[in-house]
Design a protein around this nucleic acid. Sequence first.
DNA 1: CAAATTAAGACAACCAGTCGTATTATAATA
DNA 2: TATTATAATACGACTGGTTGTCTTAATTTG
Lengths: 198, 198
Amino acid sequence: MSRSTQKEINRENLLNQGVALLMQQGYHGTGLQEILDAVQIPKGSFYNYFGSKENFGAEVIKHYITPYIQQITSYLEQSNADALSALQRYFNESIAELERTDFKGGCLLGNLIGEIGDSSEICRVALQTTLNSYRDVLQLGLSLAQQQGTIRTDKSARDMADLLVNTWQGALLRMKVEQSTEPLKQCCQALLGDFFKA
Amino acid sequence: MSRSTQKEINRENLLNQGVALLMQQGYHGTGLQEILDAVQIPKGSFYNYFGSKENFGAEVIKHYITPYIQQITSYLEQSNADALSALQRYFNESIAELERTDFKGGCLLGNLIGEIGDSSEICRVALQTTLNSYRDVLQLGLSLAQQQGTIRTDKSARDMADLLVNTWQGALLRMKVEQSTEPLKQCCQALLGDFFKA
DNA sequence: CAAATTAAGACAACCAGTCGTATTATAATA
DNA sequence: TATTATAATACGACTGGTTGTCTTAATTTG
């Protein structure tokens, strides 16, 4: 196997493991050694791939969001003239997944904002752009739903998407503390099922 | 000075410093030594007052919320037949304070839920009861406003208080990442100024 | 003086990050 | 094509520092 592709595989494995561990144990709660042991990669290589733990953290953040955006995009494309249902389907699927994993983790973005949003500027910026791109895809869905007449048009899709992201983040925190997905369901019901309705 | 009162003063100082440091740097990001140095208390004493860092964390959590609940209660008592304005005044004051402190810290509860909600059961329970008592006082305000006719009555004060707490927490995270209080203002406007209105 | 409380420092475990060496891949040369 | 030269990467022992906790001695109290 060529060296460059192996390097890519190693990087990918580190990022995946980083997502899993940072989400559950936090940034300072997870040592580099723990990540390296899990994927059997020596410490020296880590510092070749990423320059520092902080840079790694920023890359983990960007790596994290990709599948979620793909999932929403895919749901929106599948939905024929019913973007609102696609969004509801996405959130319901997320809720089901969180129940399967016993409410662990929640959202890496929310967790890291609280922990290192003040202390790491690099990660703060990564969190900002990542959260914005998540907001953008929700905004797209809401704006489609506006065109389809299922979502009110006297509020901007942008504002509603922001509110939805923020309430969802808060509900995820509440879920962890209550060990229940009730806050998540309430979030979807109150916003998508009521406040945003046309 | 008697020993018992000195002990109380030391405990109080440690808790206050703990609130400040844990809020800004997180649980694992703050070492005991840093807290002890700040209040000039030897490490050995710490383990007399609190049994472990984890127990200390749980006590810091409970200690944190008291002034906020007092503030809301005080605003509600001052307000003559206008509980909704009292709540709005509380949130506006909180927003002004966060602007003064450059969006640092946010809410200790939200930050710690994300960081250690999964790993420390003691702290998770402390966070749960603390957040619930915060919700309770907001619920009281909303239910007063319902009686006064300024808040809709087709939704329970409890559900609205939960939604308000969760959205506020999410907005605090968003504030840290955006370095702006805009998300907080949007939260108050959308809920207290629109969705919850009678 | 005896008992209980407090404080100081020792402790092993762990942290992120470094550095010299070993290994490998690529390029140059014959 | 075979051999060598050069560069890039892989590696893990090691560093200085910090972590939370515990043992032990000093101090205070009744």
